[in-house]
Design a protein around this nucleic acid. Structure first.
Length: 479
RNA sequence: CGAUGCGUGGCUCAGUUUGGUAGAGCGCUGCGUUCGGGACGCAGAGGUCGCAGGUUCGAAUCCUGUCGCAUCGACCA
C-alpha cells in the first residue's frame, strides 16, 4: 500500500535494524532530541510528559510507604566521594569534575553527583543520634551525571533524570524489608502502570551495586530479546554506616551502626516502554502512563458542526478525568492517524459527518488497530472500558513475549545455542563462581541478569563448569 | 578507549572523483482549493558548505590540522 511506503520511509522496521528503529521512534514521536553536548539529550514535551506521569504515580506509591522527599546538592567534594572504597572504585571512572569556581581553581575539586549515597550518608551522620530518629525514609527526584562513552537516548545518557531513595534503619532486618518493599513497588508499577512484566530477583556478587551488600533488580525483556535492568534496590547493610560513622544510641544506651538502603528508577524506563510495546508504526503507550490517552480526530472538520461535536466529546471525556485532546490542525485525516500512531496514543476517536448523522463515532485502538463504532451517548463508559482493556491486553501481550522468549538450558551446548540463536532470557543453573560468569560474558557476551526469587531446579550442575549448582539464574544479553 | 560512518537552509541529502555564480525534496510563511490512512495549486522566506590554516586568479570541492555527532564493540542505570 502507498501508505506503508510512507511509513517505511519514516520509521525503519524492527526486523531490519532494531537500533535504528528505536532511534527513529524516539525522534518521530518527538520524545527527545540530541543536544550540542554528546550524550546529553533534550527531553521534549511528549517525552517529558511521560516522565511526569511516571513521577506522579511512582511518587504517590512511595508516599504510601512513608517516603518523604528531600533535595541534596549537585556537587560532592572529592574527599566525601572517597569515603567508601568499593563505591568510589565503581563510580570514579565516570564522574565529571568541577575544578574551578569562576576563574579561581577550587582548593578541592568536586564531582557532579553520579548518585548521592555519600551526600545522604554525610547528612545522616549528623541527623541520626538516637533510635528515636529512625528510620529515615527519604527520596529525591533529580538528575545525575555519569560520563558515559557510549550513549543512547533514554537508555544511556550522560545526564539522566531519576529518583533515588535513601533510607536509614536501626536493624538489618528492617533494612532488608525496606529493600524488598521498594523492589515490589517498582515491580508493581512496571506491571500495573507501564504494562511491563518483570523478573524479580537478586544480582550476583559480580553485578551488584558498588558498595552494596545485596542488590535486587527488576529485569524486563525488550522486543528484540535483550534484557533491560529497569529498577534496582540495594541493601547496604552497615557498610556505608561504618565508612561514614553513622551511629545511633539504642534503648540500652549502646552505640549501634545504622543499616541503609537505596533504590532508583530512571528515565531509562521510558526506553523500556518504547522497546517493550512499540511497533513499526511507532510508540505504543499503555493508557495509564500515556500523557494523552485519547485523541479526537475530526474528519471534514470545516463541515458544519463537526468541530463542535469534537469539542463536545472532549469536554465530556475530560470531565470524566480522561486525558484527551482534539487534533484540530488543518492536516489531512490520514496525517493525523499516522501521527496518533507514531506518538502511541492508546486510542483515537474519529468523528465526521457520517458518524454524526448516525449518532456515532469510531474508536480505533492503537494496540490492535481494531475499529469500534460507539453510540455518542455511550462514549464515556466505552472509553473507560476500552482504556482498561488496552492496558490489560498490552500487559498480556508483553507477558506472552516474555514467556515465549524465556528458555531453559541444562547443558553448555544448549546454553550457547540459546544465547546465540534465540534472543531472550535463558534460565540455567550456576555454581556461584564468578569465573563462570566471566567465561559466559567473554564467550557469549551475556551476563547474569538475576537470581530470581522464584527458583526452579533445572539440573544439579552449573551450566558452565559442571560443578554442583547453587542457584538458578536468568542470563541474557542486555542493554 | 577501539572500529565504522557522517558534518552543505529546520530535516534528509545531491554536488567533492575532474576547483569556475550554492542545488533538490520535505518542512516553514501567505492566499486559495481540499479533508474517510501522511491532499493540491500559486507566490515567498531561508545556507559565510563544522572550525582553523594552506595551495590557487578562484575552494563546499585539493592539502594539513582540529572539533563535533551517530552507530557498533569493551565498560557502566
Amino acid at each position: 500500500m502507498a501508505n506503508d511506503k510512507k511509513l517505511v520511509e519514516a520509521i525503519t522496521s524492527m526486523e531490519e535494524d532494531f537500533a535504528q528503529w528505536y532511534t527513529d521512534v524516539v525522534k518521530k514521536a518527538e520524545l527527545c532530541d540530541y543536544s550540542s553536548v554528546k550524550g546529553c539529550m533534550i527531553i521534549k514535551p511528549a517525552g517529558y510528559a511521560i516522565w511526569e506521569q511516571i513521577q506522579q504515580q511512582l511518587d504517590a506509591a512511595f508516599k504510601k510507604t512513608g517516603v518523604e522527599n528531600v533535595y541534596m546538592p549537585l556537587f560532592i567534594p572529592e574527599s566525601l566521594l572517597q569515603k567508601e572504597k568499593d563505591h568510589v572504585e565503581g563510580f570514579a571512572p565516570e564522574v565529571a569534575w568541577v575544578t574551578h569556581g569562576g576563574l579561581e581553581p577550587l582548593q578541592e575539586r568536586m564531582c557532579v553527583r553520579p548518585t548521592s549515597e555519600t551526600l545522604f550518608c554525610d547528612f545522616y551522620k549528623n541527623e541520626v543520634q538516637s533510635y528515636r530518629d529512625l528510620p529515615k525514609v527519604y527520596n529525591q527526584w533529580c538528575s545525575v551525571v555519569r560520563w558515559e562513552k557510549t550513549t543512547r537516548p533514554f537508555l544511556r545518557s550522560r545526564e539522566f533524570l531519576w529518583q533515588e531513595g535513601h533510607t536509614v534503619h536501626a536493624t538489618a532486618k528492617e533494612a532488608q524489608e525496606r529493600t524488598i518493599q521498594m523492589l515490589n513497588v517498582y515491580a508493581d508499577f512496571a506491571r500495573d502502570v507501564l504494562a511491563i512484566p518483570v523478573v524479580k530477583g537478586q544480582k550476583t556478587e559480580k553485578e551488584k551495586f558498588a558498595g552494596a551488600e545485596d542488590t535486587y533488580t527488576i529485569e524486563a525483556l525488550m522486543h528484540d530479546g535483550k534484557a533491560l535492568q529497569s529498577g534496582t534496590s540495594h541493601n547496604f547493610g552497615d557498610g556505608f554506616a561504618r565508612a561514614f560513622d553513622i551511629q545511633y544510641t539504642d534503648k540500652n544506651n549502646t552505640l549501634q551502626y545504622c543499616h541503609q538502603t537505596s533504590w532508583g528508577v530512571s528515565t531509562r524506563i521510558i526506553g523500556a516502554v518504547i522497546m517493550v510495546h512499540g511497533d513499526d508504526s511507532g510508540l505504543k503507550l499503555p493508557p495509564k502512563v500515556a500523557p494523552t490517552q485519547i485523541m479526537i480526530v475530526p474528519i471534514q472538520q470545516k463541515k458544519e458542526g463537526v468541530l463542535d461535536k469534537a469539542y463536545e466529546l472532549k469536554n465530556r471525556l475530560s470531565k470524566q478525568g480522561f486525558r484527551v485532546k482534539v487534533d484540530d490542525t488543518d492536516k489531512s485525516p490520514g496525517w493525523k492517524f499516522n501521527e496518533c500512531e507514531m506518538r502511541g496514543i492508546p486510542f483515537r476517536i474519529e468523528i465526521g459527518p457520517k458518524e454524526i448523522e448516525n449518532n456515532q463515532c469510531g474508536f480505533v485502538r492503537r494496540d490492535t488497530r481494531e475499529k469500534i463504532s460507539v453510540h455518542l451517548d455511550e462514549v464515556e463508559t466505552k472509553a473507560a472500558e476500552l482504556l482498561e482493556t488496552i492496558q490489560k491486553d498490552m500487559y498480556e501481550a508483553a507477558k506472552a513475549h516474555l514467556e515465549s522468549h524465556t528458555y531453559t538450558a541444562s547443558s553448555w551446548e544448549e546454553f550457547c545455542d540459546s544465547i546465540n540463536n534465540k534472543p531472550g532470557f535463558v534460565k540455567a543453573m550456576w555454581c556461584g563462581d564468578q569465573a563462570c560468569e566471566n567465561k559466559i560474558k567473554e564467550e557469549l557476551a551475556a551476563t547474569s541478569r538475576c537470581m530470581p526469587f522464584e527458583q526452579e531446579q533445572i539440573s544439579n550442575q552449573c551450566v558452565c563448569c559442571g560443578q554442583p549448582a547453587k542457584k538458578m539464574v536468568y542470563w541474557g544479553r542486555a542493554y
